[in-house]
Each structure stands twice: as structure tokens, then as C-alpha cells.
Design a protein around this nucleic acid. Sequence first.
DNA 1: TGGTAATCGAGACGGTACGTCACGTCTTTCG
DNA 2: CGAAAGACGTGACGTACCGTCTCGATTACCA
Lengths: 205, 205, 205, 205
Amino acid sequence: MTELADTPVQPGAARTQGRPRSSRAHEAILEAVLDLLAEGVSVETLSMEAIAARAGVGKATIYRRWAGKDDLLLEALVKLKGPPPQPEGDSVRADMIRLLTVVGPKDERAVRVMPCLFPEVHRSSEAYRIWQEAMAEPRREVMRQVLRRGIAAGELRAGIDVEIAVSMLISPMLLHRMVRWNPALDGYEDLAEQVVDVVLRGIAA
Amino acid sequence: MTELADTPVQPGAARTQGRPRSSRAHEAILEAVLDLLAEGVSVETLSMEAIAARAGVGKATIYRRWAGKDDLLLEALVKLKGPPPQPEGDSVRADMIRLLTVVGPKDERAVRVMPCLFPEVHRSSEAYRIWQEAMAEPRREVMRQVLRRGIAAGELRAGIDVEIAVSMLISPMLLHRMVRWNPALDGYEDLAEQVVDVVLRGIAA
Amino acid sequence: MTELADTPVQPGAARTQGRPRSSRAHEAILEAVLDLLAEGVSVETLSMEAIAARAGVGKATIYRRWAGKDDLLLEALVKLKGPPPQPEGDSVRADMIRLLTVVGPKDERAVRVMPCLFPEVHRSSEAYRIWQEAMAEPRREVMRQVLRRGIAAGELRAGIDVEIAVSMLISPMLLHRMVRWNPALDGYEDLAEQVVDVVLRGIAA
Amino acid sequence: MTELADTPVQPGAARTQGRPRSSRAHEAILEAVLDLLAEGVSVETLSMEAIAARAGVGKATIYRRWAGKDDLLLEALVKLKGPPPQPEGDSVRADMIRLLTVVGPKDERAVRVMPCLFPEVHRSSEAYRIWQEAMAEPRREVMRQVLRRGIAAGELRAGIDVEIAVSMLISPMLLHRMVRWNPALDGYEDLAEQVVDVVLRGIAA
DNA sequence: TGGTAATCGAGACGGTACGTCACGTCTTTCG
DNA sequence: CGAAAGACGTGACGTACCGTCTCGATTACCA
């Protein structure tokens, strides 16, 4: 295969000498990971060799950038999820329901990958940090703002604990999407609505 | 190593001829899995060879009993968790809080293993089935009964959806224990109390 | 590929437990080495992976038996050379010429491999030992006997140093066959004759 | 590392444009090769990357000058050996013994490298050519002259084959020095003398 | 009581993937 | 434009496990 072109990655970094790292290779690797996952390869059976072959890249080129499979997977997933959705401000209830139900266009792959990140996130503090910063915290922050707006508007009680409310809203949805924790909920198309209703009533003014 | 004795396992099964399977080997294998996990071996780096060596058992003896690592791990975890706790019936609130905070004596190992089961549970329908039957459903059932008792006693509104309430109660605790999903909640020793309070107010009569 | 059958190798050795090593695999590996060499693969470009693939064997099966490529090559060559030729006893001169010119049926491969053993023999004392015992010494011994018979018959001077004579007879032939050390000798079909004549005259009675 | 100065090599060559090649780099590379060998790195484990690093040179700078490792090694060895010794003319016997026993000051490295050249010399006709021209032929030529002088002086028979005599004299010494072909000769400090005596007697007038 | 049959620990089997290393080439910046 | 630096695709290295398959040696049941 002909070698990848050479747009440098990290142009302002300390490394200035030598041939710069190819951004095309970088992208090709991340794309290969997501492609293979989309084709049904499970995260456990996903091999670095297959990724390298699919990306048309040497294994060393992957290991030059990421410490291991988990590291790579994490970045691929962060790239996949993209920025969190923004509330429209109609009402706390409507905003919340929308936030809990938005599904990105490629979320099919995300649903497959996310459960596989749990072991890694549980084990590595670095993975945990990335995961929190890139995925969890931005989404929590959006919900905090919605709740605070509700408090300011008098919809919600002033003394409520925003963190707990956020966790209570997201957790059931997350577990349901990820591992279908309670099969009895499978029929609920309006699960988000019901969760929001219970929590909002629980913290209403 | 000297061979394990041979108290038969599955004494009433169809296999009647030949040497019966050693129940000592069975136990030794499960113990080896839990020991290795307790010693800090992650589930991903846990190898069948290490298990066999630790248990003083041939690899074939493991594969004769379980289909693979996931299968074995699941059984080890079920054995570890034991039966779900029983409510004492004081009040819905007190029972719930107790159910959400009980920690078995060996739960240190369980916390380590559980996140690693998520990928497997997400992928394999058989693992999902076992996990639901042996771990999730029994615990959900206990909580359902508490809630129904609350309805019968007039503490809770009659029309509430028990399944949703159960999921809303457990999910934040589960995610917190397993992956510390919201780091802001780390300081809450009374997290269970607060979650229960919000939900109960949300579904109060 | 179906697994190789299971005639044990080293039947009297210390290892008695476990599945015995397959002698078929052993043979297949050595054959693969010689086949690849015969097909023109140089010793430097000969890879363990190619050997394993050709032999239909896992790489571990090779490394279980030999420490590395050199070790394996040495055994393959010893197998290739076979036992040294035997003199017929006509006369010292005729016997010597025959010994110096005999070429085994597969010597084409031997000529290719032998020069490649020199670095290894020079570096590893173990390789040196095997090479001496299996290849060099048996051939030297045959020549010693011929010379001693010549002394006993009065053809050769009694005080000659047999070791030096042997080295002087073999060395020019060896260097010529292996690296064509002196290109001016290329045309000599009767090189062995001439070498023998000079040495015999030099040590004649 | 600071760049090497740039005294041009080949000042009169066709390349006139651009920066001339640094003769310092050339020397540094050859020195690096010999240094690494002297430090015990075997020829097989000697890597171009290590040479470049030791010489403070980019790999491309090496490949710009030599086709590969063998090419480079050959030049390093030729540089190491230096010109062949000159006979003093006392007598054929004394000259020969001196020629066969001279050991250059750095021959320690030469002894290590020479056996490693055999595979290369056997395989590559280009390596063979360089080796013959730079190392073997000059030394053979010196010995031819000594022998011819002996013939002219009536010391040696007129009809002898000089090429064969040369090969017979050098070969046992070469094999002994390089691979200790016959361990029984290890104790001979006067091996050269004995070899010369046998050959001279064999070709005496 | 002696044969039959399945299991035992042990470890070799053909494989796959690992993470590293070196190859020889290519692409930067610097002098 | 040559220099160093170092990334590139390639491919072999030697190791670790995978899940399967012999081995000889134990057990139990059943005749």
C-alpha cells in the first residue's frame, strides 16, 4: 500500500524534529476501529492486527500513538459521541426528556462499545479521567443547567441537590440502553418521560 | 500434585457410568477464580491456564464443566453474591435504604468483577439470561414486594409503575458502586437515603 | 490442518507425564527446513514462521524443541549429512582421494547451509560442540585411520603428526567447496588428487 | 546531536550542486561498526539503527553510501585488515612462516568478523568480488611471489603448481583461526611451521 | 471380583494475537 | 541540497493463551 500523506498531528507540540506524525494515519486508525465495530466485531475479539490491516497501517504506528487497545477504543468512542446536545429551553420537563432520548446518528456503534468500556473505566484511573471529561461531565453539565433554570423559574424546589437529581435521571436510562438491566422496561417507549415525571415530582417546588 | 478426591457432582444425572466428576475440583476451580481476582488479577488478564494452575487442575477439567471463561466467571460471581437480603418490614423507606446499602462480606471482589460482566452480558444472550435470573431479578423482586406492601399500606400511590420505581432506585446506586459515574457523589454516605427520598416523594400517595 | 499423530520422541527421557511430544512434528519441522533451503531460501531469510507454516506446525512446537534458528539448523544439517563414508583400503592415496571427493546425494543443500553455520559455530560453544561431534570429528577419524594404516604399511613416515596431516588434507577442500576461496582453482577437477599428492610426498617415508 | 562538519568526499566527482557529503560521517559510520563489534555485539545482532545512533548519523546517510549491512561490513573489514605484510626475503620457509603468523594489531575484531562474512561471500557475487579483491588476492599474491622466488633459487621444484601450494598453506591456518576446525591442533604454537614444512617437503626440488 | 468407562493432572498440539524490533524508505526542519 | 531526526509500511521475532487432544493413572459402577 502506498504510504499515507503527511499532514502533521499536534503541530504545536514539543516534537519538532523528524518526520511529523501523519494525521491521515491517525484518522484511518480511528475509522478502522469504528468500522470493524459497526461490522459486528465485538470489542473483545477486536484485534490490533485487524485494526492495522483495515487502516492500512503498521502496528507500530498504532502503538506510537496509543498505549493499548483500551486507550485507542476510548478515543474512538469519544470521537464517535461528539458534543452533547443542547436544551431548547421550553420547559424543564421537555428539555429533560429530549436530553435523555437524543440518540446520535451513529449511536448504534456507541451502544455496542459503551458497555465494553466499563471494565476499563473501572480499572484505569486514566481511562476514568478521559471518560469523565469527554463523555460524562459534559452531559451532566447540560442537565445541571436545565435544573438550575427550573429552580430559578420556581418550577423546582430551591433546596434540591442537583447532582443527585442528575444521577437519578441519567442512571436508569443508561443502564437500560446499555445492558437492558430491567427487561420489564423493554416495552416502554416513553421511559424517559416516566423517569422525568417521577423525579420532577420528587423535587418539585 | 495429588489428584483431588471424587465426591460425585450431579449424582442423579444421566451419566452413570465411568468415574464421576470430582466436586472438589469443581469447588477448587471456583475458589481459584475468586482468589485470583481478590489478589488483583483483572478479569481481562485472568487466564484459564492460571486458574487451572492455581486450582491444581487440568485445563480439560475446567472445559468439561464450563463453556468458557465467561461462563465460569458468571457462576463464580453468582456464588459470591449469594441470596438477596430480606426486608425487615419496618417501613418502605427503611427497608429500601437497607436493601440499597447492604454489602455482602465479600463484596470487595464483587465490585471488581461486576463491571467486567457488562460486556459479556451485553453480548451473550445466555450470559444475560443467567445474570438476570441469578442476580438481577431476585433483587428486583425483593424491592417490588416492598413497594407493593407500601401501596397496600397506603403509603404509596396506587397507580404507580413498580418496575420503573425499582429501576430508578437501583440504577443510581449500581452505577455509583460500579463505575463511580458521578464523582460529585463521592462524599455522600447517605446517597441511598437521598435517592429513596426523591423517588418516594415522586411516587407518594 | 489436522493435528499430527503422536509417536513419542525421547521415549526413555525424564518427562513421563502429559502428552508426549509428537515425533511426526519433529520430523516435519526438520524436513521443512531442508525443503525451504532446497527451494533457494537463504539461511538468513529463512524465518521460523515460514518453517512452521511449511511444516504445518505452531511456532511454539518449534521453540519447545530448539532454542533458536541456529540450533534447529544445526540439527537439520547433521541429519542431512548422515554418517561419514568408509575407506575401501586399496591404498592411502586412493582412499584419501575418495574421502575428499565423496559428495552425499543431497549435498547440494549441505553446500548451501555449511557456510552459514560458520558464524554460529564461531559464536556458540554449544553449536561448536555439536558441529565437532556430529560432523567434523567422525570425518577426521576416518582419515586418521587411513593414515595410521599407511604408517603401519610403511607407506608413510612413522614420526608424522596425524592431526596436522588431516587438517592439511581437508582444509583446502573445505574452503574450496564452501567459499571458492581461491578462484584460480576452479578448473581443477583433480584438486583432491593434487592436494593428496603434495601432502603424501611431504609425509612420505 | 550537532551535525557533522562537511569536508566533501569525492571533491572532483560529478555532483557539484548542493551540500557535499561529509567525510566525517563516512568515517564515523565505519568507526561505529568496528566499535560495536569490539564491544561484543555479534555481526548478526549488529543493527543499522545501532550503527546510526552510535555514529550520530541518520540512517539515510548510511544507505546513501552503502547498499546494505553486508556492503558496509565488508568495507569496515577491509579497512580493518589493512595492506598485506611484506616478506623479508630470508628464505622461503622463514618468509612463509612469517606470512602465516602475522597478526595485525586489531585482528581481534577481524577474527570475530571474518566467520560472519562467509555466508555473505557465499551468497552474493558482489561480496565475493570485494572480498577476493581486497583481502584474499593481495595475500595470495605475496605468497606466490615467495614461492616463485623459491623456484628461481632452486629451492622448489620447477613444475609445482603455485596456486595449489598457496591454498594448501593458507587453508589450514585460516580454518584454524576462524573456527578452530580441528581442536586437536589447539596446543600447536608452531602450527604454521609444521604446515610449511610438510608443504615445502611435498614440493621441494 | 474384574471389566468397562469416564475423569483425573499433565502437558503437547495447531493456532491467533500480542507488543517489540529492525528493515529500508520517506518526509520534515535546519544549516 | 545534504544533514539529523524520526515516522512510515512491512514483517519476523519470541511469548502467552486459546480450546483441543493424548497420555498413564485413578476411581466408580456393573456384570
